[in-house]
Design a protein around this nucleic acid. Structure first.
Lengths: 226, 226
DNA sequence: TATAGTTTTTAGACAAGTCTAAAAAATAAT
DNA sequence: ATTATTTTTTAGACTTGTCTAAAAACTATA
């Protein structure tokens, strides 16, 4: 039987574009604008146009002038495999090498581009087939499938709601360090005690202590309600 | 006090050149020719000339036209740090991810370029501060020092000599697979039983069995005499 | 020591990826 | 519906690293 699994190789730069389009496509209907990609990658829109044309020829994205880009099914698979690598490496860094969750991103950005199927499948096994990365994000399996768990932004809950913290939206070092300082982290039980209508800030109970957090903080924390 | 530790960054390509010059400098007096570097890197001499000029400006090598290149002390430190990374990753792949010693090189070639001091120091600790890589080559410490153990090529021993196999010179997959097939590997006791004057082949005793190997094989195996 | 052969360098070109500046298209405002 | 504004694309240039072909420099030979 002739299997036409494309054995195309992508440069680091191409992989970064593919990954970015994938991330921008979540919670976004329709094509992603070149400007949005440029902003995310801290590059210029003209560079994006060039790259997007190339990726379009490689059948990774669908691109019509002035209409933004969307990933093809093939492109989604490629993106998932990059994200899988990124998140597995993050688990490795935290679980095995004593990195804290705010230190892993930069290194994982490099490690995700290493080409070796055996490396990734063995790493997966070595780590015990983890299902989430250190920020609570799901790790795609070898086929690119990932099961997003049921979760809600803390800022969308109402008084009395309770649940366990299962993820963060912002993964910047500043935000994660702030969470560490406040004792907020994955697996912690959180209950909404009070919501201030004026600024949307809220008082939450975590480990028997009440804590006031801004709406911005709350809208970067994911809770799995119980 | 003003410390002038150069915080220069090198591209993957530059790192590959530096590493190659280092390897070619072992057992070689004087400058390394651009041709030799070109051969080792499977590139063209003209490309080497260009790169060598650049590395010379960065004070990594000393280069005078038509006279080959030598690493500066700084260049040697850079080379040692790349080799340290390469060999630590090889240990990781074999000890933790079930790679065999003939599979590690290609992946380590990629991993050695990852930039993160913390990653390497933590990896070193995680692996238990190994002193040799899976082929018996020494792993430089964080300062670039490495202690080569006392060893001799098997082909240079005489009848009756005995010792433990501590390294291989050729690390190609073909050679290493051959060794696996013959039951030859690091840590194995080897005794020279017979030497055939005609072709330099020799009969060795390993694990109570006698084995005939060619001179070429013997000149790629390092023995630590007892 | 002049010449033949080899090695090394130079000169110019190319591909990938990026940028700036200007043109073209789409969107918004009057 | 026409102008104004913003977004996107094009055109041309630059950088890094590579190549080919030709020139220059070394080395060996007669």
């Amino acid at each position: 039987m002739f299997v036409s699994e494309k054995a195309v190789m992508f440069s680091q730069s191409e992989e970064n574009y593919i990954k970015t389009v994938y991330h921008l496509s979540i919670d976004h209907e329709g094509g992603i604008s070149t400007n949005a990609i440029a902003k995310a990658l801290e590059t210029k829109a003209s560079s994006v146009t060039d790259m997007v044309k190339k990726l379009s020829e490689k059948e990774v994205v669908i691109y019509k002038k002035y209409q933004g880009v969307t990933l093809t099914d093939f492109g989604k698979k490629v993106a998932a495999s990059i994200i899988r690598k990124h998140r597995l490496w993050e688990v490795f860094l935290v679980d095995k090498l004593n990195f804290s969750w705010d230190e892993v991103h930069e290194v994982a950005e490099q490690l995700e581009h290493i080409k070796s199927p055996k490396l990734i499948s063995e790493l997966d096994a070595f780590l015990g087939f983890p299902k989430q990365d250190p920020h609570g994000d799901p790790i795609p399996d070898a086929d690119g499938n990932m099961h997003q768990i049921e979760k809600k932004l803390l800022s969308l809950l109402t008084i009395g709601d309770e649940g366990v913290c299962v993820g963060v939206d912002d993964t910047s070092s500043e935000f994660l360090k702030f969470l560490d300082k406040q004792g907020i982290g994955l697996g912690k039980m959180i209950k909404v005690i009070e919501i201030e209508p004026f600024d949307g800030s809220l008082v939450i109970r975590i480990q028997d202590k009440d804590l006031s957090i801004s709406n911005k903080i709350a809208s970067n924390l994911y809770i799995q309600k119980i």
